[in-house]
Design a protein around this nucleic acid. Structure first.
Lengths: 209, 209
DNA sequence: GGCGTTTTGGGCCGGGCGACCCATAGGTCC
DNA sequence: GGACCTATGGGTCGCCCGGCCCAAAACGCC
């Protein structure tokens, strides 16, 4: 059983990846992170056999994070774009694999196994199946344009936090900022209050993660 | 393919039955009803090969409904209790089968097939598997005690209607009654507003239908 | 280095919401 | 027949929510 930690700030994609990989018999996802700082914390508490990271994440990007970590475990870098330049940068940062987010799932599993076995540089491929799963959310014109904080807030809402005060406390921001985020969410999702937003969030597959 | 219509005022159980039966390869649920009047309407617009009805339903109970219909299709009666007296009444009303809501799913499928084949009186058995699915909701102490109207309202809420006015219009009651129902729902589910109630409703599997 | 976006925060206002009272009609159950 | 629940409806009150205005940091992108 290959134990994997995944880091990606796109929560929907992250969840899709987790589900997809957990469906692979010899792979188990034991941790996830949505930014570099969280990733370092996760690596400390639950060190995996293989690490999967997105290149661009807030606070501390994927490449900086693996440099910071000093490559304790084989790392595969996942990127939206498959350009050679990104690949080179990932390689310099110590990654042993580089994947585009637009290829079939089996390639992703293969890359994880290869990294675990000690291979260097399994290139390209990966994750088209996941994007397909993820497509539903992208089809919703507004949902795709949700920002990171908006998705965070919406996820909390779908998890049962409803009052402005609760949400503000949980996100360490003022109640006014919560209301601003909510107003933007309503606009993007085409709803008019918390109840509808919560329903929509669940429909879109937003889950605490 | 045996086409079936199911009538049951317990919506959660109804949905469980529908799902369970749709999972059976040779059975397809083509309609559902939550009271006798709705059942008669459904039978008119979508006549099935076999009818499954609950004995006690509001407005017009199951037995009265099948009498009213004049038994155009073989009917299996489902009851919470498996007492002989109820069985006798069901038989007099023209039902060809009688099942308790506390036996394994295969028996239910068997009863449907038997009714379709023309057998008279497949007794007892049925639907324990469905109750298991349904158990989650029953474990929630409050959810089980929701009344019919409360469930109706909650289902609308989970479907995206959120304002008092919308709900009142849809249910043909005053906005004040909606607020009363909501207050009772909050109390029973242990939540404090529409957003949390909607989240909980979805978690409990309430769906339009 | 400048522009757009994101995230953060403020104020104001009207209306809707939830909490707490209440009553009445109809049904079920013993 | 009486107790209980359900469904319906009313009123009041305080607070919170959502709409609409604005501003300033921080970040990414070109």
């Amino acid at each position: 059983m290959i134990r994997v930690v995944i880091a990606d700030d796109h929560r929907l994609l992250l969840e899709g990846l987790v589900e997809a990989l957990n469906a692979v018999p010899d792979i188990e996802v034991i941790g996830r992170a949505t930014d570099g700082v969280e990733l370092i914390e996760t690596m400390r508490t639950a060190p995996p056999d293989v690490l999967l990271v997105d290149v661009d994440m807030p606070r501390l990007d994927g490449l900086a994070a693996i440099r910071e970590l000093g490559n304790p475990v084989p790392t595969v870098v996942v990127s939206m774009h498959a350009e050679t330049e990104h690949r080179a940068r990932a390689e310099r940062a110590g990654a042993v694999g580089f994947l585009s987010k637009s290829a079939p799932l089996p390639d992703l599993a293969a890359a994880v196994r290869a990294a675990h076995a000690g291979d260097r540089f399994v290139a390209a491929a990966a994750v088209d199946a996941v994007l397909a799963q993820h497509r539903q959310a992208q089809l919703d014109p507004g949902a795709a344009s949700l920002t990171r904080r908006e998705r965070e807030l919406l996820t909390l809402l779908a998890g049962g936090l409803s009052t402005t005060e609760e949400l503000a406390d949980r996100m360490y921001i003022s109640h006014k900022t919560v209301k601003n985020h909510l107003a933007n969410i309503y606009d993007k999702l085409g709803v008019k209050d918390r109840a509808q937003a919560a329903v929509e969030a669940i429909r879109l597959g937003l889950k605490p993660g």
